[in-house]
């Protein structure tokens, strides 16, 4: 579990905030609670997951999620509602919520949801880091090497790549080895994955 992760509670009912703070606090989560959508949205940086009440005065939970997404935040959101119906849960999940729970919620269900939201956060954090690392590696490639990479992941044989680039097969082989080495790829399949996660597209 990510130690720095915070569980943000947003509910207009003070009694509910207190009870959830106790419950999740007892499980060792770090809690920050907000009694209105407005104060929550004023929070400058979010790191963790959000438990969001759907029915709140002034602004409902769906609207809060929409505003978060508009700000470019990818914080996982768990909806908690007093009167959940199927259309509402469908809307919630489509809008990008990670879970949809109805009140009264059993602590096991809530804790499981929070844990999986934080796992998700961690995974996406890890993925983010990995992509960042690969990006640095990719930046170290020469222009020619990038060119060769694009051709290699398209699955063409070396001879054809050499013909396309107007060089000899031996040169392509050398470039290809260098790319594999620089990108720390163990196989062609690995290299294709790396290219995919970097958004590098194959050459024609």
């Amino acid at each position: 579990m990510n130690d720095a992760a915070i569980v943000y509670l947003v509910d207009d009912e003070p009694g509910m905030l207190k009870a959830l703070t106790r419950l999740l606090g007892g499980e060792g989560f770090q809690i920050k609670s907000f009694d209105s959508a407005k104060t929550f949205l004023a929070e400058p940086e979010l790191h963790g997951c959000v438990i969001l009440d759907v029915a709140m005065p002034e602004m409902d939970g769906m609207e809060v999620l929409r505003l978060l997404q508009a700000k470019g935040s990818h914080v996982p959101v768990i909806f908690l509602t007093g009167h959940g119906d199927i259309p509402m849960s469908v809307r919630a999940m489509k809008s990008g919520a990670v879970d949809f729970l109805t009140k009264p919620v059993r602590s096991e269900d809530l804790i499981r949801a929070v844990k999986s939201a934080l796992d998700l956060l961690e995974k996406s954090d890890q993925k983010q880091e990995e992509v960042e690392r690969l990006r640095i590696l990719y930046a170290q490639l020469t222009a020619r090497e990038k060119e060769v990479l694009a051709h290699v992941i398209s699955g063409k044989p070396n001879k054809q790549i050499a013909f396309t680039l107007g060089t000899i097969e031996q040169t392509v082989k050398i470039h290809r080895m260098r790319v594999m080495h620089k990108m720390q790829a163990e196989s062609i399949v690995d290299l294709v994955h790396i290219a995919q996660s970097l958004g590098v597209s194959a050459a024609d």
Binding site: M16, A55, G82, H83
Partner: peptide, 17 residues
């Protein structure tokens, strides 16, 4: 129904805490 549900939810969470 919501008005009835809210106290029940708070009671449950408190009790489990």
């Amino acid at each position: 129904a919501h008005e009835m549900n809210q106290p029940l939810a708070i009671i449950l969470s408190n009790a489990q805490a």
